[in-house]
């Protein structure tokens, strides 16, 4: 059994992670924005990453909602979300993608900049996400110590809430953030924005170790810069969740012109990543 046994803190998604760890491997998380290359295309893509090319894909899907001012995203995600917005994607389309993932064996979550939730209404957002089968929300720009409404809404609707820590976070801040999270905590492996990188960061094991010391009872995910099975295996040797975003999105770079080809590529990458996490602790 993994050390993660406090069901109240694990919520829905943390229990999925604990289940993976009980099988001797970390959980794999795939991020894709809804609406790119189209709403239907993005739904096909999220389904594809849950299946991979040999029936094994991601355990959790992070569905991003395109936003006009994505200050934590690198160019790959920016370009896709700018196109998705130009094509008329709406906040509620994320719930359609959530429903599609909920119908697979994977667990859906949403990643969104805070203003979109504020405009929707935090309680209404939590209610509609829960109704669609979503497990929770990752909020990259919401300070955990300044969001009483969100804590209330996620409690009321039984949703997980995942906040971020970074290499620059103090111990106090890590403790505060992890104490406010339900499910798991998202650790940025680098000081920077989203995007695949050639080498994984030296800072990744350090932030995981620091977070583990502060709070051993909450799973820790590593995101930013993981792009292939090899890196997934490396990161998965110490992190409880391995998060991949831009690298998956790059598989869709024909912008819908060759959807079958793009889907085949994204399935292969999801399969490669799944194999990577399988051997992470072997």
């Amino acid at each position: 059994m993994s050390q993660f046994t406090d069901e109240a803190r694990l919520g829905i998604s943390g229990r999925v992670v604990a289940g993976c760890l009980d099988q001797g491997r970390p959980a794999l998380v795939g991020y894709l924005p809804v609406g790119y290359p189209s709403v239907d295309g993005s739904i096909e893509a999220v389904r594809a990453i849950t299946e991979g090319d040999e029936g094994r894909g991601v355990d959790l899907v992070e569905i991003g909602i395109p936003y006009s001012d994505p200050l934590m995203d690198g160019t790959v995600i920016q370009h896709a979300t700018t196109k998705a917005r130009a094509r008329g994607v709406h906040t509620r389309d994320a719930f359609k993608a959530v429903e599609a993932v909920a119908a697979t064996s994977a667990t859906p979550m949403v990643m969104t900049y805070w203003n979109l939730v504020e405009a929707y209404g935090p309680d209404a957002f939590a209610r509609d996400l829960a109704a669609a089968g979503g497990a929770g929300v990752i909020t990259p720009d919401l300070p955990p110590d300044d969001c009483p409404e969100w804590l209330e809404a996620t409690d009321a609707h039984g949703l997980d809430r995942v906040f971020l820590i970074a290499p620059s976070s103090t111990e106090e801040r890590i403790a505060l953030t992890m104490g406010t999270c339900r499910g798991w905590v998202y650790a940025s492996s680098v000081m920077g924005v989203t995007g695949a990188r050639a080498a994984t960061s030296d800072a990744a094991p350090v932030i995981v170790k620091r977070a583990r010391e502060v709070d051993p009872c909450l799973p820790i995910g590593i995101g930013l810069g993981v792009s292939n099975g090899e890196q997934a295996a490396e990161i998965g040797s110490f992190a409880d969740l391995v998060i991949v975003g831009s690298a998956l999105l790059k598989c869709l770079d024909t912008d819908g012109a060759d959807m079958p080809g793009d889907l085949a590529r994204i399935r292969r990458l999801a399969g490669d990543l799944a194999a990577g996490v399988d051997r992470a602790r072997g």
């Binding site: 200050l71 971020l164 970074a166 290499p167 620059s168 953030t177 920077g192």
Partner: peptide
């Protein structure tokens, strides 16, 4: 904590909080 009534605050990625 930077609040002017209901306005203000620090809605940025955690990586910038320390700075």
């Amino acid at each position: 904590t930077g609040h002017f009534g209901r306005f203000g605050g620090r809605f940025v990625p955690e990586a910038l909080q320390a700075a």
